[in-house]
């Protein structure tokens, strides 16, 4: 039953060996750079910075979500609907502004410290969330809204029972994108004194110490990949199985 397609299982095996080989080579490489030694000697510091990093991401993403989703909802209500395209365009332009520029400019106005970092992360993280919330809510089929209204739902019921569940996948995608980008941007908060794993990366690069640098880069990369994976799971769990997306 398992080997119905020998050709494809053969290519599967090749891919598997390539993956194992790459992982092995990567492991050997970071070993040579002294990564594992460094981790063994400084578990406390890495742990502390990792927690700081998670805190930065957690706080800023939570704020972004709690501002962004309601903003997205407001922008699709009543008279605001007229400005929807305009707002989406504007947000699209904002999104092209590089993260480093946002952080740097925030610093010149607020100064140094975790507050600046969180402020910049919130601003940068807001755009994909609002954008997707607006796009998701605006994309809900008019027909089912009409059906809901005709069945006697008031606007609150319509929002919570019909619009949000149907837009949920796109809204969550925005949150996912925002959070994953946030993990990377948070690494730059070191520049404005925000702490986090960026400390190890920037210092490592400045000191030309690969082990130090990798001790920051690898956990940051893993955190981002993990977040992405985790949100994928959450999406499957929250979004109704009646809706299918490719």
């Amino acid at each position: 039953m398992i080997d119905v397609k020998p050709a494809s299982s053969g290519s599967d095996r090749i891919w598997m060996w390539i993956a194992i080989g790459t992982a092995f080579a990567g492991g050997a490489f970071v070993q040579r750079m002294g990564f594992f030694d460094f981790v063994q000697k400084n578990p406390g510091e890495i742990w502390k910075l990792l927690l700081e990093h998670i805190q930065l991401v957690g706080i800023s993403s939570a704020i972004s979500i709690s501002i962004g989703v309601p903003m997205g909802i407001l922008l699709t209500r009543g008279f605001m609907r007229r400005y929807r395209d305009w707002v989406l365009n504007f947000l699209g332009i904002c999104q092209t502004v590089p993260s480093l520029a946002v952080i740097a400019i925030s610093m010149t106005y607020i100064g140094i410290g975790p507050k600046t970092a969180i402020f910049a992360l919130v601003i940068y993280g807001l755009m994909p969330i609002i954008r997707n919330a607006v796009a998701g809510l605006a994309g809900v089929d008019q027909v089912i809204l009409d059906a809901g209204r005709g069945m006697g739902m008031n606007s609150r019921q319509l929002l919570f029972r019909v619009e949000l569940p149907n837009a949920m996948y796109i809204i969550l995608t925005g949150i996912r994108t925002s959070t994953v980008i946030n993990v990377g941007t948070a690494a730059m908060s070191f520049l404005v004194g925000g702490g986090g794993l960026g400390d190890l990366i920037f210092t490592g690069i400045a000191m030309v110490d690969p082990a130090y640098m990798l001790a920051g880069a690898i956990p940051t990369a893993c955190l981002a990949v993990f977040m992405n994976w985790g949100f994928g799971k959450i999406e499957k769990w929250i979004v109704s199985p009646g809706l299918v997306y490719d």
Partner: peptide, 20 residues
């Protein structure tokens, strides 16, 4: 997709020892 999720500064960091 995975490469995309790796933060840029981390990827730069990783590039340095590899390319050195």
């Amino acid at each position: 997709g995975i490469i995309m999720t790796v933060p840029s500064i981390a990827l730069f960091g990783i590039m340095i020892p590899v390319l050195s």
